[in-house]
């Protein structure tokens, strides 16, 4: 691949990278900084791009790594928890939903547009859970594609994703309670 072809291919993906950065940061100014950082890094290491591979996925990987570095700078430190036991997380999520069915919250939530509440809730998720949800649920990548973007095994993608979905459902239950739909106390996270 020539340098001109590389430039053309990655620059054509800037809208995708910006949307992804917006999903990660939920802030236009931070997203702009992240896109700029992503492209600087991409152009500095353009030789590492494999011709024929997916430029969008490659840029998402760089963008997500730059996002993590920005969080590290902001927080000084961060904990990237590698979770296992995806089936337990999947069941935990369903069990949480079962409680919402039991108290009527699920019925009320099912009749509402959950997207605005979920968009806020995604912004409150910590890493690595936020990236997992954004890459798979918001951007629509498969587990295999997410594994490549996030740089972790597929099992870790599943585990993080299911844990993130559970956290989001818990936040929905909070949202329903705050909106006066239910007075049932929030279940502790296990």
């Amino acid at each position: 691949m020539s340098r001109e072809e590389f430039d053309r291919e990655v620059l054509a993906r800037m809208e995708d990278v910006y949307r992804f950065a917006m999903s990660l940061t939920r802030d236009a100014s931070r997203a702009e900084d992240l896109v700029q950082e992503t492209y600087l890094r991409a152009f500095r290491s353009w030789q590492t791009f494999q011709p024929g591979s997916d430029a969008r996925r490659w840029l998402f990987t760089i963008c997500r790594n730059a996002f993590l570095r920005s969080l590290e700078r902001e927080r000084g430190t961060m904990s990237l928890e590698d979770l296992t036991g995806g089936d337990q997380d999947a069941l935990g999520s369903v069990m949480h939903h079962a409680r919402m069915v039991g108290d009527g919250t699920a019925d009320r939530l099912a009749r509402m547009d959950l997207a605005p509440a979920l968009a806020d809730a995604i912004g409150q998720l910590n890493e690595p859970f936020r990236s997992a949800v954004v890459v798979v649920d918001v951007e629509g990548n498969s587990y295999e594609e997410a594994s490549e973007i996030l740089g972790v095994p597929i099992g870790t993608v599943r585990s993080r994703l299911f844990r993130a979905r559970r956290q989001l459902q818990e936040r929905l239950a909070d949202y329903a309670r705050d909106a006066g739909f239910t007075t049932v106390a929030r279940e502790p996270v296990s």
């Binding site: 800037m14 999903s23 702009e32 700029q36 069915v101 997207a115 979920l118 995604i122 649920d137 929905l172």
Partner: peptide
Amino acid sequence: HAEFAQGFLSALGRCRHAGQMPEGVRHAV
């Protein structure tokens, strides 16, 4: 449970940022 989970995932899919990238971003990059 499956129907609720499906609705939940559909709502997550609608969280994708829908706005256009400001032209200033491309210039800045």
